[in-house]
Amino acid sequence: MNLPKDSNMALSERKQTHMDRGVVIRDAWPGYPLDLFTFPEHYLGDLECVYIPHGIIMDRTERLARNIMDDLGDHDIVVLCVLKGGYQFCADLVERIEVLCCNSSKTLPMRVDFIRLKSYLNDQSTQDLRIEGAENLPVLSGKNVLIVEAIVDTGKTMKTLLDHVKAFGPKIIKVAR
């Protein structure tokens, strides 16, 4: 598989097929009733319904892992996990990729690094992005990079991060969110 020198297409921006569209939740969706699920008792007064069951989230995470394997299988990658929110998603995604590697002829050697982004001062958004863990980013030079982030709001922070990561000269940058 020949990989383009500078591909910045996010995995979520891939050409979508009917199998890749994901789960659509309409604004009027009432959610699933709580009696269908078990959850810690101390949440009882705070929950009204469940919008997305854990199983659906894990199925989508596995689908994303398969997409990553299709795109990058047999090429070393550096997984750059954006803390704190991205930790569990990243752990689940890396685990699914490892399972797929065990059950296929493709391999995806991975190194996982962590960074933390700070663009808020108290409760106010600022123009400045502080990256904790940036001292490890020179390792990205010439590598295939997969940035794993849980939530992308306006996209400003992600754009700034992508520009910062590009400065280290990675071969490919992809974003899983």
Score class of each variant (00 low, 15 high):
E95K: 07
R96K: 14
R96Y: 05
E98F: 04
E98M: 08
V99T: 13
L100A: 05
C101K: 00
C101Q: 06
C102T: 10
C102D: 13
C102V: 01
S104K: 01
S105V: 14
K106V: 13
K106Q: 15
K106D: 15
K106F: 15
T107E: 12
T107Y: 10
M110Y: 03
R111T: 10
R111E: 09
V112W: 01
V112K: 01
D113M: 10
F114S: 07
F114L: 11
I115E: 08
R116N: 12
R116T: 10
R116E: 13
R116A: 13
K118F: 07
Y120V: 03
Y120A: 08
Y120N: 11
N122R: 09
N122K: 10
N122W: 04
N122I: 06
D123Q: 04
D123T: 00
Q124D: 06
Q124H: 06
S125I: 02
S125D: 07
T126L: 00
T126W: 00
T126A: 02
Q127R: 02
D128C: 05
D128N: 10
D128I: 07
D128F: 06
R130F: 14
I131R: 09
I131H: 14
I131Y: 13
E132W: 14
E132S: 15
E132G: 14
G133N: 13
A134S: 15
E135F: 15
L137Y: 06
L137A: 12
L137M: 13
P138M: 07
P138D: 12
P138S: 10
P138T: 04
V139G: 10
L140I: 06
L140K: 04
S141M: 07
S141C: 12
G142Q: 03
K143A: 11
N144C: 09
V145L: 06
L146Q: 02
L146Y: 01
L146S: 03
I147F: 06
I147Y: 05
V148M: 04
E149H: 02
A150V: 00
I151K: 01
I151V: 07
I151E: 03
I151F: 01
I151T: 07
V152N: 00
V152Q: 00
D153N: 00
D153S: 01
D153T: 00
T154N: 05
T154E: 07
T154L: 01
T154Q: 03
G155D: 08
K156E: 15
T157K: 03
T157S: 15
T157N: 13
M158E: 11
K159M: 12
T160E: 12
D163C: 09
D163V: 08
H164W: 06
V165K: 02
V165A: 10
V165H: 05
A167F: 05
A167S: 14
A167Y: 03
A167T: 05
F168V: 02
F168A: 04
F168M: 02
P170S: 13
P170H: 10
P170E: 11
P170K: 09
K171S: 09
K171T: 07
K171E: 09
K171A: 13
I172S: 13
I172C: 14
I172E: 14
I173R: 04
I173Y: 03
